[in-house]
Design a protein around this nucleic acid. Structure first.
Ligand SMILES: [Mn+2]
Ligand SMILES: [Mn+2]
Ligand SMILES: [Zn+2]
Ligand SMILES: [Zn+2]
Lengths: 140, 140
DNA sequence: TTAATTTTGATAATCATTATGAAAAAAATA
DNA sequence: TATTTTTTTCATAATGATTATCAAAATTAA
């Protein structure tokens, strides 16, 4: 059941990294949210729950979580990086619509687009490692 | 024939902005390149041709060029903004594949993806204002 | 324990971009 | 043309998110 935490601990071992309270607190925080949080927000949430973590540790740990695909880095054009958890039920492999008026983030997934992307890459002799697909929109 | 420059001058007038030598030099530089240049590169090109322009003026002018769609702002994940000229023959409305090994930027356009995007936005009650669609790839 | 290694966290550094403000240029007015 | 007003430019300072540094704390190994 705590399969995510187990996996994280295994990943840390693989890199000869220790499983510290701070690293685990950050992972667990990211398991609890389906929002697209920026670093400052994550720090605040941790602090509120009594898990004070330094900025440096947070940034370092987010890199690990990205590397092992627990979270995804997201840049929606406001100059700050956000993180999108892959750890919430059924939340994976989606793209984003960002409302330029409200700032709302709407998630979407389209299988046909996915396939077309793969075809395009393949046709050029490439394989896709990472995709960024964002629609900046306004209400009709 | 110098229809682009004329249009730029008209756009400036519309905003009560003057058509200065610096602004024109920047526009003309962007008419000459099909590369995806960052600010520092644009400054250097201008300097080499004897059109020395200050950083502040460059940044301000690029915002104007973006606003009037002479160029497009591009962020390919290296922390610096790049500009993609819309002023070179037939160069418009395309997306990018970025090779994570070589840094090469390959442009692509797919009509089906375009249509699917519009459908997705429409279905959610939005219209698309701007798109970011980038495939980060590696050679097969 | 003791010693060696890793991690943390306070703080400083970085660096692309933005703000500032005095001087230069351009436009408007006389 | 000379004078005044407005705009622009440019050198430089400030900003702010992120990254680097390094001494102290925690962890692990011996
Ligand atoms: Mn990083
Ligand atoms: Mn700007
Ligand atoms: Zn998301
Ligand atoms: Zn391009």
């Amino acid at each position: 059941m705590q399969t995510v935490i187990k996996k994280f601990k295994k990943n840390l071992q693989e890199e000869n990294l220790k499983s510290t309270p701070q690293r685990l607190a950050i992972l667990e925080e990211m398991m609890k949210t389906d929002e697209h949080l920026e670093c400052e927000e994550i720090l605040l949430k941790l602090k509120e729950k009594g898990n004070k973590v330094s900025r440096a540790t947070l940034y370092r740990t987010m890199d690990i979580l990205v590397k092992y695909k627990f979270v995804r880095k997201l840049e929606i054009g406001d100059g700050r990086v956000r993180y999108d958890s892959n750890l919430v039920h059924g939340k994976r492999n989606h793209d984003h619509m960002i409302c330029l008026d409200s700032g709302d983030i709407i998630e979407f997934y389209n299988d046909k687009i996915e396939k077309l992307q793969n075809e395009i890459a393949e046709k050029n002799g490439y394989k896709i490692i990472r995709r960024v697909h964002q629609l900046f929109v306004k209400k009709v």
